[in-house]
């Protein structure tokens, strides 16, 4: 495959600017394999999987993630990397789609107020207005030319030595859109994926390829469907355990979708 390097770099320009080192160095992650036995059972028993717009496991975990975010607002904040946290009242998902093998991002607004059926509809609607992976909603400053780059480098060094001056120099991390990103890397075949999280996001959710694991059970060994999920998070704001609790909370909701995920779920986040 012929690659035109100049053209490709031009296309990726703002994505590259977003990945400036100050934006990603504190990204770490936690992974837990979530059990999908009960949610799958719920889907087949409730008949939701057979409607006009069928509900899938993906819609269930999107609903669960949105409701967990309402109970754990620190995952949904905008964070400057130092002391400033900007809480967000709305939960707008930036969701990944696999459109013919290509990655695209769409937005699902107010995701925490949707039940699984509404989520399925919103999900379908979001595919109508998608952006490619190179899209950046708000880009950081990145000057052109060698001298422009030199100036950027000098400023980056100043920020490296004293992060407090970043805002005074008019520099910022940029933004990808949405308040919380959900990447389904499993749709592309990823069995494990350690994504790099970018400021100002405090965390994101990465869903991986489902796997069937042989496990001991009361009636002898059997196959269990598990979907590994990982939460890359900003280590400044939280530790491994907090991201683990996020995923356990999701598991708790997925184990009882009737109770936690139906309706607007205002009072049912824990």
């Amino acid at each position: 495959m012929e690659i035109n390097a100049r053209e490709y770099l031009e296309k990726m320009r703002w994505r590259l600017a977003r990945h400036h080192f100050v934006n990603w160095t504190t990204s770490v992650h936690t992974r837990v394999d979530l059990d999908m036995t009960l949610p799958r059972q719920f889907l087949s028993e409730s008949g939701l999987a057979e409607g006009d717009k069928p509900v899938t496991l993906e819609h269930l975990w999107l609903c669960a993630a949105a409701r967990v975010l309402r109970a754990r607002p620190v995952f949904n904040v905008a964070y400057d990397g130092l002391r400033e946290i900007t809480p967000r009242d709305e939960i707008h998902f930036r969701v990944s789609f696999n459109l013919g093998g290509k990655l695209a991002w769409g937005i699902i607004e107010n995701a925490d107020k949707l039940d699984p059926q509404q989520m399925a509809e919103a999900y379908l609607k979001a595919t109508e207005n998608v952006q490619g992976p190179e899209h950046v909603q708000k880009s950081p400053i990145m000057r052109k030319g060698r001298l422009g780059r030199l100036l950027d480098d000098v400023l980056a060094t100043a920020v490296d030595l004293a992060p407090q001056v970043e805002k005074r120099l008019g520099l910022g991390p940029g933004d990808d859109g949405g308040t919380f990103s959900v990447l389904n890397a499993g749709a592309f075949g990823a069995e494990d994926f350690h994504a790099v999280l970018l400021r100002p996001a405090a965390a994101m959710l990465v869903v991986l390829k489902p796997k069937f694991v042989v496990q001991p059970g009361e009636n002898g060994p059997g196959l269990v469907e598990r979907v590994p999920m990982s939460v890359p998070f900003n280590h400044n704001l939280m530790d491994t355990d907090a991201a683990g609790y996020f995923l356990f909370h999701m598991q708790q909701m997925l184990d009882d979708p009737e109770h936690f995920l139906m309706g607007s779920g205002e009072e049912k986040t824990s």
Binding site: M12, N98, G189
Partner: peptide
């Protein structure tokens, strides 16, 4: 019957800034 089959795990470390995840998955696939 349960059977055991060998698999070879591969890890691709790639520059996320330059390459989107779908392209990386296609390559590793």
């Amino acid at each position: 019957e349960f059977v055991s089959s060998p698999v070879l795990p591969l890890i691709l470390v790639y520059a996320q800034e330059l390459i989107p995840v779908d392209r990386a998955c296609t390559f590793l696939s």
